[in-house]
Nucleic acid binder design. Structure first.
Lengths: 155, 155
DNA sequence: GTGCATGCAAAGGCTTTGCATACCA
DNA sequence: TGGTATGCAAAGCCTTTGCATGCAC
């Protein structure tokens, strides 16, 4: 992505965040700005711990609590999405203007592939309708080996 | 299920467990027996905490650690399956001789429906093949409202 | 008897909360 | 200036581990 485009997008996300804060009478502090920046810069999945490290590189006294609290806000205003792959730590990914998707996760190297399969989504709806169940959200993760790790396993 | 049939099944599960223990030079203690019994009696999803309570009703000095350690063994020998619905606590369900299935979970009352959709399973395989990914396991949960809670919500 | 299993308590890992101080609006 | 935010440390929650003792084989 060209930098101009990327910057444009960051601007919009920045806007979403500051509007959200304003609407709740919350304050846009340098820490919140910094954490948002680091979160967007990372781009992919990131844990609170990792984000904390990134933030500290820029501002050594940022605390864990601030990172967690800010992540809650980012999730609230739709800029972040929580991911729980069952490994005991929550990860976060940028969510703004992104389409819904699910994940394949390599249990060897941690790489992940995002995918969206409309047929599966439709079948999920069908099967829930059949049981009189009303879906509000779902989680689907496929665990296994990515192409690279399969090759390494053979050799 | 008739008691005779149920007892027959318990016997088989008991057999699986004791064989597993024997094969690993582990011991069949009264606690392990008790915990297996309570786990099977419950039948559905159960947390370590709940299982601990059930076990304590019969034997007041059973410890948490023993429950956790026993659950690990039960999982190891295929009698139990870990479920992680992202609520911060692992649940377990009987697994022996059961077909794979996924879950719909009511976020209101905690009720759950088990389902298996072969088309979804097939599509999961297809989409992973397309990415050169080799699935070893998957997790799929649909969250929402069960029929009962939808009605309650309306009234 | 030998060595695994147990119970208790303490420690671990991740996340949240309390509190005095700092800072934005 | 007033009230929110921060940083630090402590607490919470679930799960695991350490250790002296107990029990199955």
């Amino acid at each position: 992505m060209k930098n101009a485009v990327k910057d444009k997008r960051r601007e919009r996300e920045y806007e979403v965040f500051s509007q959200y804060l304003k609407g709740k009478d919350l304050k846009l502090t340098s820490q919140r700005e910094l954490i948002l920046e680091a979160f967007l810069a990372q781009g992919g999945h990131i844990s609170a711990e990792e984000l904390y490290q990134r933030a500290r590189e820029k501002k050594p006294h940022v605390g864990f609590a601030t990172v967690y609290r800010t992540l809650k806000h980012l999730t609230q205003c739709g800029l972040a999405r929580e991911l729980d792959f069952g490994d005991g730590r929550i990860k976060y990914e940028p969510e703004f203007n992104r389409r819904h998707h699910d994940h394949m996760i390599c249990t060897q190297c941690g790489a992940y592939i995002e995918f969206l399969n409309p047929q599966i989504e439709e079948l999920q709806e069908q099967v829930s309708r059949k049981h009189g169940f009303k879906i509000t959200s779902h989680r689907m993760q496929l665990y296994g080996l990515c192409q690279k790790c399969q090759k390494n396993a053979k050799s």
